[in-house]
Design a protein around this nucleic acid. Structure first.
Lengths: 149, 149
DNA sequence: GATAGATTGTAGGTACACAAACAATCGGCA
DNA sequence: TGCCGATTGTTTGTGTACCTACAATCTATC
């Protein structure tokens, strides 16, 4: 194999990059984040930061690792996300009086206000990502993705 | 809204993070890369590096940017991928005699050998990622993902 | 043949993503 | 009470991923 005989010349059963789930998932995710940047209405905000803000708004005060689990982020990853959000004043951290390992996270007033304003844009983001699919296919796509997660 | 009234208490139409395509795509992609690392059989190799190697094997010598386009990578991103693969001796770069801006990439003998050996594992990776779905759903899922990319 | 515009590769900066290793702290159990 | 294992958060290191800006080079057009 390799180099001389092109894959496209071969019969079925070949490994075609464009047909692999992993590659397709990566490309779809790529486009999804690009759409997010264009539609969320706040150039600073990334998808992860948005997820953290929304979850904090929905669930109320949480520890850092707990928020990470709810948003599917590594402890090392959520740490950076929180640091950047705190630096911008959207999140406040205070030590937990009961468990001295933890710091409790809450949305700042401006953080909560931002979430309220941008929630509508969040719906627009999801619609734009799903735009290539018909109305019936969207529910089906979501169901399949949930099983693949 | 925000903080006091939990989203989960509200009626339909709320913005639930777990139901957003972007979030689901991110989680599915997350799992896909984890499965890759476990099944590809080479601890060093990442999904992007694998994509670059396979495409080079399929298409023969290519310029760096061209390879990036074929694998859906930014010029700045493919640059790093190529640098690491070249450092490990899996890819060779030589200046293009015709267009002096370009450098032509080829698989080294060991790079080509690696692709040959691991192609079978590539199929195993894709199957493992799709394992949660039934036989009929897989084709449908691939088709939907192609339209979302 | 000169020049404007596009393309190629590089560099610096920011932001995920995860593994590995670590100190501080908590919880349960002897 | 004392200790061991688990949890919390941090740090370091590597690898995507994209933006902006840039120098070198090519191409199309005049």
């Amino acid at each position: 194999m390799s180099a001389r005989t092109k894959r496209s010349d071969e019969t079925a059963g070949g490994y075609v990059l464009e047909d692999q789930v992993g590659h397709l998932l990566r490309r779809a995710h790529q486009r999804a984040t690009a759409v997010f940047q264009g539609e969320i209405g706040n150039g600073q905000l990334t998808p992860m930061q948005w997820a953290a803000l929304v979850k904090l708004d929905d669930e109320g005060p949480l520890s850092q690792n707990h928020l990470g689990r709810l948003t599917a982020m590594d402890p090392a990853t959520i740490q950076g996300v929180i640091r950047r959000l705190a630096k911008r004043g959207l999140i406040e951290r205070r030590p937990d009086t009961v468990d001295r390992r933890r710091s409790v996270l809450t949305l700042s007033p401006s953080g909560a206000a931002l979430v309220d304003v941008l929630r509508a844009n969040g719906h627009r983001v999801s619609e734009a990502i799903l735009a290539p699919l018909g109305e019936n296919e969207r529910e089906h796509a979501l169901a399949l993705l949930k099983r693949l997660g």
